[in-house]
C-alpha cells in the first residue's frame, strides 16, 4: 500500500451557508497503480488532490503515505496542475530543475537529470526556450518532466489535459501511459472526462457532487496501451456516463434557476461533450 485516504472531509464556508466539498472520502492507491477519479466540475477533485499534496488541510480525516501521516507538502507527492504552472522567469530546463535546485542538487547533476526527463517527454530541443514560446501541450510535457525529476512516489494529476485540443490530448494520454509503464509510479489522475479516466486507469472511482463522495468503483481490465478513441473505451465510458447523468441532473437542479429543466436536452448535449463521450 502506498497512498491511503481515510475519511476525508472538507467544508467551505460560502455566503449561503456551508458547502460540503468532500465528504467521507476513503480509498487506497496500490503501489504502481494508475488510479483515476472522475466527477463533474465542482465536485471537489482539485480540493482532494491539494489535500493529498498537503497544500490544503482537510477538515476531517487523514492522508497516509506508506503508513505515515501527511502533514504538509512533500516532494514524495508531486502535482501536475491543469494549467502547467511553469515559471515564466525560468527557461524550460531550469523549470524542470526547479525542485532539484531547491533540494540542493549540484548544477551539473541537476542539468543532467533535467535533460534526461526532457528527453523522456521529447522536448530536449526546447531546453532553452521560455514558457511563452511553448504550446499548451508542450507546457504540460514540461510540467510532467518537472514532476518526474523529483522522483516522487506518487504523481497527482489534476485534469492535466483538459485545456488541450483532442489530438494533443490523445497523444499525451498515450505518452503518459508510456511513462507510467516505464517509471512504475503510482498515479492519481483526476478528470471530468469519463473516457479519459477509462482509457488511463487501472481503476476508476466515480465521484458525486456536493457533497463530493465516492459513488462507484470500477476496475478497467482492457489491454494496454489504450487509445482515447477505441470502441471498448467508449462503451465502458458510456456506461459510467449513464450513472453520472442522473447525478448531474440532481446537482444542476439544485444550482441552476428553476427554468433550467426546459433546457434539459441542451444540457445533456453539453454534459456528453464535457464528460467526453463525444469527441
Amino acid at each position: 500500500m502506498r497512498l491511503k485516504v481515510e475519511n476525508l472531509s472538507k467544508i467551505f464556508p460560502t455566503r449561503h451557508g456551508t458547502l460540503s466539498a468532500l465528504e467521507e472520502i476513503n480509498f487506497e492507491a496500490r503501489e504502481g497503480e494508475f488510479l483515476c477519479l472522475v466527477g463533474p466540475s465542482g465536485c471537489g477533485k482539485s480540493t482532494l488532490l491539494n489535500i493529498i499534496a498537503g497544500l490544503q488541510p482537510p477538515d476531517q480525516g487523514r492522508v497516509w503515505m506508506n503508513g505515515e501521516e501527511v502533514k504538509g507538502p512533500g516532494t514524495d507527492r508531486i502535482v501536475i496542475f491543469q494549467d502547467a504552472g511553469l515559471f515564466p522567469w525560468l527557461n524550460v530546463r531550469q523549470n524542470v530543475g526547479y525542485g532539484l535546485k531547491i533540494a540542493g542538487v549540484p548544477p551539473q547533476q541537476r542539468h543532467q537529470i533535467a535533460m534526461s526527463f526532457l528527453k523522456m517527454v521529447h522536448l530536449s530541443r526546447f531546453a532553452g526556450s521560455y514558457v511563452h514560446e511553448l504550446s499548451g501541450g508542450m507546457r504540460q510535457r514540461v510540467a510532467i518532466a518537472r514532476a518526474l525529476a523529483m522522483n516522487p512516489k506518487v504523481l497527482l494529476l489534476d485534469e492535466p489535459f483538459a485545456a488541450l485540443d483532442s489530438q494533443t490530448r490523445d497523444i499525451l494520454s498515450g505518452e503518459l501511459q508510456d511513462i507510467w509503464a516505464r517509471t512504475k509510479k503510482t498515479i492519481v489522475f483526476v478528470t471530468h472526462n469519463v473516457r479519459e479516466a477509462v482509457c488511463l486507469g487501472d481503476r476508476v472511482l466515480v465521484l458525486s457532487s456536493q457533497p463530493g463522495r465516492i459513488k462507484k468503483e470500477l476496475c478497467v481490465t482492457l489491454p494496454r496501451p489504450r487509445s482515447l478513441n477505441s470502441v471498448e473505451v467508449g462503451e465502458l465510458a458510456s456506461l459510467i456516463l449513464k450513472e453520472l447523468r442522473e447525478e448531474i441532473e440532481r446537482v444542476m437542479s439544485k444550482e441552476m434557476d428553476s427554468d433550467w429543466s426546459t433546457q434539459k436536452s441542451d444540457l445533456f448535449d453539453l454534459i456528453d461533450r464535457n464528460l467526453g463521450s463525444g469527441i
Binding site: N50, I78, V79, Y98, A103
Partner: peptide
C-alpha cells in the same frame, strides 16, 4: 496562487520560498 502551490509542492519554504 498556482505559482505558490507549485513552489510549495516542489519543496520551497522559508528563505527559498522568498528567494526562488
Amino acid at each position: 496562487p498556482l505559482y505558490v502551490n507549485v513552489a510549495r509542492n516542489l519543496g520551497a519554504k522559508g528563505f527559498q520560498f522568498y528567494w526562488r
